[in-house]
């Protein structure tokens, strides 16, 4: 029993999370059952736990459903152009390395139209945390196939099944030398939160892929009509395997989802650190 006037831990946490949201902008645009809100919640809770000053934290999003996340966080936040969240964030971080810069965007934004920026920013090891919500589709535009849509999946632009091959995002990030690479689903609420918490304490180009449900335009075309069915799929078909091989990380149509922290190494100099050396040399 909780006595009147005294708030429970849950209530306090809820208030804290709400303080990081632009409550005056709610309700949000996301569909009932969408996984983006779950991911955003995990991010905000991790931020609170990590005791990171929200006034020194910047959230940058691109375009699309996930791209709207920047619009709801009560921090310095930027809703940029399609695909350009990463270079926009690079500009902020490079100009002010003391800021905590988070890119929160979707799979199409980060890996199709923004793919070039992703690979080059990872290669340079900018000190940025990328939370990549992968819902297998372009939700905002009505469910077309994207760079992460599994082969064989049905979307509005793959009416006979997807002939295309999806990105293996952790594989891609690791190959580019990203020091922290993890994948979770929206079912793995605590693991996701913990992973973001850890990543917030790491340096360099950190990538967390979050497999998320889009029941409205993806699930219903692919044998999962409700959010619950999609979550069921995530629960039943996901396996934690931190030392997964690249092949094991690959996602197949309604197949197994290998989750885990695939890479967590420290001490790789970031671009921003290396540039400090450049400044020192130039001023000698």
């Amino acid at each position: 029993m909780i006595s009147a006037g005294k708030k429970s831990t849950m209530e306090l946490l809820r208030e804290e999370v709400e303080s990081l949201l632009r409550i005056d902008r709610l309700p949000h645009v996301w569909c009932p059952g969408c996984g983006i809100g779950i991911t955003l919640n995990a991010f905000l809770r991790a931020l609170i736990r990590a005791k990171i000053d929200p006034n020194k934290t910047v959230v940058v999003s691109g375009i699309g459903c996930t791209g709207r996340a920047a619009g709801y966080v009560n921090m310095d936040s930027f809703h940029t152009t399609h695909g350009r969240a990463i270079p926009f964030a690079v500009g902020i971080k490079f100009a002010r390395p003391e800021l905590n810069v988070v890119v929160f965007s979707g799979d199409g934004d980060l890996f199709a139209i923004g793919g070039n920026h992703f690979v080059n920013a990872a290669r340079r090891n900018h000190d940025i945390l990328v939370i990549a919500v992968n819902n297998f589709t372009y939700g905002m535009t009505g469910g077309q196939h994207g760079p992460t849509t599994p082969t064989g999946a049905y979307t509005t632009t793959t009416p006979y099944g997807n002939p295309d091959r999806p990105f293996n995002i952790p594989h891609l990030a690791i190959s580019l030398g990203a020091p922290y690479v993890a994948r979770w689903t929206t079912y793995h609420l605590m693991q996701l939160q913990n992973s973001i918490y850890t990543a917030l304490h790491r340096k360099g180009f950190r990538v967390i892929e979050v497999i998320s449900q889009c029941p409205t335009v993806y699930g219903r075309r692919n044998e999962m009509k409700s959010p619950l069915e999609m979550m069921e799929y995530f629960r039943k078909f996901s396996v934690r395997k931190d030392d997964a091989t690249f092949d094991e990380m690959e996602l197949t149509y309604n197949g197994r989802i290998v989750v885990g922290v695939f890479r967590d190494v420290q001490g790789i100099p970031t671009y921003e650190e290396r540039y400090n050396d450049i400044i020192r040399r130039a001023q000698k």
Binding site: T81, R84, P87, V90, G91, A95, N116, N120
Partner: peptide
């Protein structure tokens, strides 16, 4: 940067 699009995005962010 990796291209001109990244370049202008970066300066807008930095501004």
């Amino acid at each position: 940067m990796e291209d001109e699009i990244g370049s202008i995005a970066a300066i807008i962010g930095a501004s």
